[in-house]
């Protein structure tokens, strides 16, 4: 009879390296099912990280060899030169240019996350708002941030606000979209079950929809964090008088190749660090990603 439509969205978990349910190695004990394979979880490090590290080392080596052969450090510095230059410039990089960039990234991204989630909740709560907002949001995404950023600089000068706008503009939409999808993808049977217990709409939202949307939200967080890093740097390129992006551009005009790369090294490191933090938070808190679709 009316068997509720079985989860309409067959989601493929994009961007996540391991979409399978994560058993908790320590806690399973005598559990009758699943997660036995995590017994080997004691030495995963060498196993998992060795291949990518080997590849990276190999590529770096190639790069170094090529740079040594070409012998034009101002255009193609090798990894060793870059590291040396980073060390030479450490005072200026770490204490003068890193803080404003870091601030832009963190503030911009957090702002974007709050705006993105708020919009998603509003759009989920009201179909009228959804149909009103969605096309407008899509339009904001068709504008290349890089081209419109100079305009923000015209309005606001060489300020952090101008750069924050650029970061928010480039990241909030993915967060809205994923969060909204997550909220909508909630198993309708679970919602109905709560209704039979007498749940109000707010209770349904809190008890099922939010937990169901969290994995999607984390996907969005992992996607947008590197964008925030990139766009903060781009915004600094386009109009700033401090920051890693600004520093990198200035070094280009000085034809100092290694010094162009030095701030980029820091930026990549920041992005990787952020991703690692997010990944471990997800591992720790969101253990049910794989179980959301296991209804028959």
């Amino acid at each position: 009879m009316l068997q509720m439509s079985i989860s309409p969205n067959k989601k493929t978990t994009c961007g996540s390296a391991d979409p399978l349910p994560q058993g908790q190695p320590g806690k399973t004990g005598a559990a009758p099912l699943k997660s036995q394979k995590y017994a080997r979880g004691t030495i995963p490090l060498a196993h998992e990280y060795a291949p990518p590290l080997l590849l990276a080392a190999f590529l770096l080596l190639l790069w170094q060899l090529a740079a040594d052969r070409i012998q034009m450090g101002h255009i193609l510095p090798g990894p060793v030169q870059i590291l040396l230059r980073t060390w030479e410039l450490r005072e200026s990089l770490f204490f003068h240019h890193l803080p404003p960039t870091l601030l832009t990234i963190v503030c911009g991204w957090l702002l974007s996350v709050s705006i993105g989630i708020a919009l998603a909740v509003l759009m989920h709560a009201s179909p009228a708002l959804d149909s009103m907002l969605y096309p407008v949001l899509v339009i904001t995404q068709t504008v290349p941030v890089m081209c419109i950023s100079p305009l923000f600089v015209l309005w606001l000068g060489y300020t952090m606000q101008a750069r924050l706008i650029a970061v928010v503009l480039s990241t909030f939409f993915s967060i809205t979209l994923h969060t909204c999808d997550g909220l909508r993808g909630t198993d309708p049977q679970k919602k109905e079950l709560l209704r039979t217990f007498g749940a109000t709409r707010l209770q349904v939202f809190r008890q099922v929809e939010i937990p169901s949307a969290l994995p999607e939200l984390f996907t969005a967080l992992k996607m947008t964090l590197p964008w925030a890093v990139i766009d903060a740097a781009v915004a600094e390129w386009l109009g700033a008088n401090e920051g890693l992006g600004y520093f990198s551009r200035r070094m280009i005009s000085k034809m100092d190749g290694a010094a162009v790369f030095a701030p980029l090294l820091l930026l990549s490191f920041l992005a990787l660090l952020g991703m690692a933090l997010l990944q471990s938070a997800e591992h720790r808190f969101i253990t049910w990603r794989g179980e959301l679709q296991d209804s028959l």
Binding site: P21, G23, K27, P32, L33
Partner: peptide
């Protein structure tokens, strides 16, 4: 425990 640690009958 969490539901995933239980068998179908449980």
């Amino acid at each position: 425990r969490y539901p995933r640690e239980l068998s179908g009958g449980m």
